[in-house]
């Protein structure tokens, strides 16, 4: 990975409340350009809330949030131009073909017709789905859909991509292939911000952040964290943190 010390995401004292419920409780962290940043947490820990704020879908209640150099409070539209986003709820258009989906999102991100054509060809070739070009997205298997959604989310070559539980519900083989895709874009210099609750996936990340009850409980490189907590796997680490046991 080409991790360097330029922060692409800067979050300081982020608080998000829904009425009396605090979903994000005073989060502070940085994500550096080029790294794969894993965001872990049980269901309801506040992962999706954070990712929605970072991608400009939701406004922070308090705190400073800067993404690709723009303020999430005021410049969410500028953020949106520079990021990709793929959510756990699969969200391409089922009633459009593979090519039509690529074309639509390419067009939305302001690619020229030529760029759209070139990147479509490239994309279906990379994924090895040339034969599915004219198939409706609703008719292709889930694993392919996820990979396609990922590829479309980076069609405009963003600096940063958010993946909100991208591998939910897919088989282990596809999961592996998916991570190969993630590695490939990371190598090309795209920063990857990924949430997951597959702990084996956390091991693939450069750094991870463990969230529980809306707070950051641990943050660092997987190997360092394992050492710090004296555990052999992230799975174990996660279990300890979520159950509220302190480090040894």
């Amino acid at each position: 990975m080409q991790t360097n010390n330029t922060a692409i995401i800067e979050v300081e004292n982020l608080v998000k409340r829904f009425g009396t419920f605090t979903a994000n409780d005073n989060l502070t962290f940085k994500v550096y350009a080029g790294e794969i940043f894993g965001f872990l947490g049980a269901n309801g820990a506040g992962k999706t809330t954070t990712i929605r704020i970072l991608s400009g879908l939701s406004k922070p209640t308090e705190g400073i949030v800067k993404v690709v150099g723009f303020d999430a409070m005021k410049q969410s539209e500028s953020i949106k131009k520079n990021i990709g986003y793929m959510s756990q709820r699969f969200s391409l258009y089922d009633d459009l073909t593979v090519i039509e989906n690529i074309r639509l999102f390419g067009g939305i991100y302001g690619l020229s017709n030529k760029e759209i054509r070139n990147r479509s060809d490239e994309l279906v070739k990379d994924l090895g789905i040339e034969n599915l070009r004219k198939r409706l997205v609703g008719d292709i298997p889930l694993g392919w859909k996820q990979k396609l959604a990922f590829s479309i989310a980076i069609i405009h070559r963003p600096k940063l991509i958010f993946l909100d539980e991208p591998t939910g519900g897919v088989d282990p083989l596809t999961r592996r292939q998916f991570w190969e895709l993630i590695y490939r874009v990371a190598k090309q210099g795209t920063t990857v911000f990924v949430t997951t609750h597959y702990m084996d996936e956390a091991e693939y990340c450069d750094r991870i952040c463990v969230l529980a009850d809306g707070q950051i409980k641990a943050l660092g490189e997987p190997s360092n964290l394992k050492h710090e907590y004296q555990v052999t796997s992230i799975d174990e680490l996660f279990y300890r943190i979520v159950k509220g046991e302190d480090r040894v």
């Binding site: 879908l57 959510s87 709820r89 699969f90 969200s91 999102f105 991100y109």
Partner: peptide
Amino acid sequence: IGTIEQINVTPV
């Protein structure tokens, strides 16, 4: 379906 969220996160 959730596609509106995908559109919302684009610069549309």
